[in-house]
Structures are given as structure tokens and as C-alpha cells.
């Protein structure tokens, strides 16, 4: 065991550097997922029949196709049409769109939870519908989304390892390189990867907990979320 640790030690800096690439991919895909997910949620709630249906089809597609299949489609698909796509871009788009479909349902639920009286009050003072959505509904809906969103975050952190399949130089690939150079280190290499994700998920959840506390407002939380209300 001690010998194993000594043998794997030289590989650890490379493995950690590779983890940073997972974090980069995570940030990129979560931003794509957040922006697209918000738009999809808004279209589903306010988009009317045509745009609402398009948004539902989008959501259905990206929630139904396995992540690995999406990755291959985005990586091997574009070159067929003469478009060059990096493995980073392919992974960002495939996993980002997939996450947007899940995030859209978190946001949609939160938007629908916002009482209709809020919208009515905003309209009654002369706000346009769009302005009312942006200034009144979304700020409330995003706050209500934090617990669900934290869950989605923990899920996509792990999805970044799938990018390994399209030759992306992330942490799994790094572990694989260790294994290829010394097969007896395979177990330790994957334990190291597991530790990386334990830390990432912990840090992510702690950060989201901080965000939730920072934005907490008395009387504004998902029904039954169990969070303590500090109202008088």
C-alpha cells in the first residue's frame, strides 16, 4: 500500500491539473445550461402554444438521449458537415444542452410556484409583461430554484467525466494514463479520482448553501422546503 502511494505520487500533480479541466468544463456547461434552461422554462410557461411546444420538444429530446450518445453526436456530427469542433466545445454543448433541459424544469416549477398576484400587481402598476417577468417573477423563481439547482449541480459535476469518451484531457483520461503505465496502480488512480469528486461535490454544495443563505428572504422559499422562516 505504502509502496503503491509512493509509486502514484508523481502522477498526482498531473491528475489535479486534469481536474481543473473538469472544473472548466463544468463551469462552461453549467452556464450554457443556466441560460438555455431559463429561456426554455420561460417559453414553456409564457411562450404560448407554438413556442411552448417547441420548448417541450427540446426538453424531451435532451432529457431522453443518454449523455454519452449526445456527446458522440456533438463530437462526430459536425465534422460530417465540414464543421470543426473541439472536444471541449462538443462536451460543453452536449452536456450543457442536456443540463438545460433539466434546469428548465427546475425553473419552470419555481416560476409556476410564484403566485399569480405578483404578476398582476406588477402589471397593474404599468410594467410590461416582459419587465414584470424580469424584475418580479424571475428574481423570486431563481431563489426558489436554489435547492433543486444544487442537486442538478452535483449531477453535472460527475457528468464531466463522460467527456473522456471524446478524447478530452480530463481527470478520467489522466487516471487511465496512470493505469496504462502501471496496471497495479489502477485501483489507487480511480480512488484518487473518486476523492477529487468527493471534494468537488462538497465544495459545490457548500458554495450553493452559502448562496442560498445569502439570498434567503423571509417568507420566500419553496413550499415544504423545510428551510427556517425568520419572519416575526
Amino acid at each position: 500500500m505504502i509502496e503503491g502511494l509512493r509509486a502514484i505520487w508523481p502522477f498526482i500533480p498531473g491528475l489535479l491539473r486534469a481536474s481543473l479541466i473538469n472544473i472548466e468544463l463544468l463551469l462552461a456547461l453549467i452556464v450554457v445550461g443556466f441560460v438555455v434552461g431559463t429561456v426554455v422554462a420561460l417559453l414553456q410557461v409564457y411562450g404560448g402554444r407554438f413556442l411552448g411546444t417547441l420548448a417541450r420538444i427540446y426538453e424531451w429530446i435532451f432529457r431522453s438521449i443518454p449523455a454519452l450518445v449526445l456527446l458522440f453526436l456533438f463530437y462526430y456530427g459536425p465534422p460530417r458537415f465540414g464543421l470543426d469542433i473541439s472536444s471541449f466545445a462538443a462536451a460543453t454543448l452536449a452536456l450543457g444542452f442536456r443540463s438545460s433541459a433539466y434546469q428548465s424544469q427546475i425553473f419552470r416549477g419555481a416560476i409556476l410556484t410564484t403566485p399569480t398576484g405578483q404578476m398582476m400587481a406588477a402589471r397593474s402598476m404599468g410594467m410590461s409583461r416582459v419587465r414584470a417577468i424580469v424584475t418580479i417573477v424571475l428574481p423570486q423563481a431563481f431563489r426558489l430554484s436554489i435547492p433543486g439547482w444544487t442537486n442538478e449541480f452535483s449531477s453535472v459535476v460527475k457528468d464531466t467525466t463522460l467527456a473522456y469518451a471524446v478524447g478530452f484531457n480530463e481527470v478520467m483520461r489522466s487516471a487511465r494514463i496512470i493505469m496504462d503505465s502501471a496496471y497495479e496502480l489502477a485501483m489507487l488512480a480511480f480512488i484518487a479520482v473518486a476523492l477529487v469528486f468527493l471534494v468537488l461535490t462538497y465544495a459545490g454544495n457548500a458554495a450553493m448553501g452559502g448562496v442560498e443563505r445569502k439570498f434567503r428572504i423571509p417568507g420566500l422559499q419553496m413550499p415544504g422546503s423545510g428551510a427556517k422562516d425568520h419572519g416575526r
Binding site: 398582476m120 400587481a121 406588477a122 404599468g126
Partner: peptide, 20 residues
């Protein structure tokens, strides 16, 4: 209508204050 509504206050039975 938005310009008109800006000139007419509306007070609701259940207040509808913006909770955030």
C-alpha cells in the same frame, strides 16, 4: 395600457406585495 396603468393605483385585497 401600461402608460394608463401607471396613472391608476390599484390596491388588492391580499396586498400582493413583491415578496422578494
Amino acid at each position: 395600457i401600461n402608460r394608463i396603468r401607471a396613472q391608476i393605483g390599484f390596491v388588492f385585497q391580499d396586498f400582493n406585495l413583491f415578496s422578494h
